[in-house]
Amino acid sequence: MTLRSTSPEYTTPVMEVRELKRYFRPRGRGHGPVRAVDGVSLTLHRGEITGLLGESGSGKSTLGEVMVGLQWPTAGEILSRGMPVERGMSRSRWREFRRQVQIMFQNPFEAVNPRFRLLDVVSEPLELNGVPRSERGEQVVSALERVGLSPPSEFLDRYPHELSGGQLQRACIARALMLGPSVLIADEPVSMLDLSVRAGILTLLEKLKFAQNMAVLLISHDISTLVVVSDRLAVMYLGKIVEAGATDEVIATPSHPYLQVLLNSVPTVHKSLFAQDKDGLDLKGDIPDAGNIPPGCRLWPRCPLAEEICRAEIPELRLLKGTDSHVVACHLLQEQSEP
């Protein structure tokens, strides 16, 4: 278990989003907007990895892109170290925000310029921020050491295609760290890597959350990966968070039907990763399009436990009684929870 210091630096969130929405314009006449992110609130703390679990179509990647400033939200607030991020903010504040929140993507080969040597790939953020060329080399070498690409001299002159996926992903992490961000958003960082290489990257992220004093938002569709290094877990379905809390808590007591079915469905190699009930709940049908979100609770057409109220009202996230921070959005848990 990690011990978090009680100093304000750690207890105040380093990044916060409140009721964040990102809608896309409708496809054509008679279609509503595509509500990719539909009211998400999250807080990120330094020294903590927050896992965001969602399948494709859940809006998880869109959320990541909005949080890093690659897209503007349709509604809601973003606060970076207490400072609001909004249209009309001053140029210097915008640049400060972009330095503070960095991102890494699923496919490292698509995230770097194939014509750049590694030295140029990793030093690009420094160049864009006016760091003189003479100082860049040293910082790059130090960054490569930190991510395990050692000795750096062996990697500086190589081109992306000369590296393995795992090595290149480490270089992408190094690049993301160059400006000393307080938040790293990692969107499916290991999904495209071979199994035997994944642990190395996950261990690195775990080490860096303290070494760099930053928060990590780890986005993935793979619960097994998330459980390894996440301190906190948030589960997303069709644009909304349906369950969240400390990882141990959420895994030991999954409360939302969607998460329960998900944990039941994960094919495991090692026994007892999750308590699984093979004959338990199952979901009907497939996840709907984000342009056709059902009314009320988004899961009701597929949920085996759905009742009338589920179709009528959208459930709010409520705190499960007896827990510090385990929240669930499900009408069937009214008794066991409080607002």
Partner: peptide, 22 residues
Amino acid sequence: MGLVNAVPRGRGAAQLVSIPGA
């Protein structure tokens, strides 16, 4: 052996095996 031990088995990256090299 390396592959089987590289499959996540719960909390803690410290338990996960990573096969070095390529």
